[in-house]
Design a protein around this nucleic acid. Structure first.
Length: 243
DNA sequence: GAACCGATTGCCT
DNA sequence: GGCAATCGGTTCG
């Protein structure tokens, strides 16, 4: 008995690494949030390559969304949300954890998608080490405890080495090089396996506009930060694999 | 410049 | 289930 429990189906092959084109992000925030579920988030820090399948996102909109950092117009922190699409917006929460967002909408229009949970795919030993787990555990085979490695926005950032140094970076292995001569971490998003069932529900941890169904989950994933909302979306998610 | 608060997590009971 | 940790951003005086 080698595998105690198959917590995830083993990927047939390593997912594609090619970054999504910028036009993917230059659309309305809700569409981007829906279609990012199933895509693959990659980071490269030194020799440490990590990737995970995005299984949970939240959309944060413009000035009309009181729960969004953009609600009060651009500030020193939230200005990134008003900038060009396809850029990482990273901030510190509770003085302890980082949250990774992806800027959506056309430049000048605020919007960002919070990445809340991943299914770990590549670089599991690195993720375990960063999360303070068993550093001696080697190998990329998923273990039962790995389902929580990236189950939450703070955990996700910790596992993939994302911090404030990534704020404002253009997503893309090459783009990051252009933005900074030697960025400490390169971050990008590639296509992936679209969810069989996408559900929508209220965003987590907010009090304003709490009823709006702007949280999107792969209903079948064991790696969600909280249980998936019950309501399936009527329109199927289309494009995670089509870019 | 001081005070307050938060798109969270992990530990403790 | 409760709560402390911890600090940048924002607001208020």
């Amino acid at each position: 008995m080698r595998a105690p429990r198959a917590w995830l189906p083993p990927p047939a092959a390593e997912p594609p690494r090619r970054p999504l084109p910028r036009r993917f992000f230059a659309r309305d925030t809700v569409t981007v949030a829906r279609e990012l579920v199933g895509c693959t988030l990659w980071t490269l820090a030194g020799d440490d390559l990590c990737a995970g399948r995005i299984v949970e996102t939240e959309a944060y909109l413009d000035e009309r969304d009181p729960a969004s950092h953009a609600a009060r117009g651009p500030t020193a922190r939230s200005g990134v949300m008003f900038g060009p699409p396809g850029v990482a917006y990273v901030y510190l929460i509770y003085g302890v954890h980082h949250c990774l967002n992806v800027v959506a909408e056309a430049e000048g229009q605020a919007g960002a998608v919070l990445l809340r949970a991943l299914e770990p795919l590549v670089g599991l030993p690195t993720m375990r080490r960063r999360r303070g787990g068993e550093s001696r555990v080697a190998g990329d085979e998923p273990r039962a405890g790995d389902r929580a490695l990236c189950a939450g926005p703070g955990r996700l950032c910790r596992a993939l080495g994302v911090d404030l140094a990534c704020n404002g970076l253009l997503l893309g292995a090459r783009a990051a090089r252009r933005t900074q001569p030697d960025p400490p971490v390169r971050v990008w998003i590639a296509a992936g396996r679209p969810p069989a069932r996408l559900t929508a529900g209220p965003r987590i941890g907010i009090s304003l506009a709490a009823s709006r169904p702007l949280r999107f989950c792969d209903d079948c994933s064991p790696c969600l930060s909280r249980p998936a909302p019950a309501a399936p979306l009527d329109r199927p998610d289309r494009a995670s694999g089509s870019f």
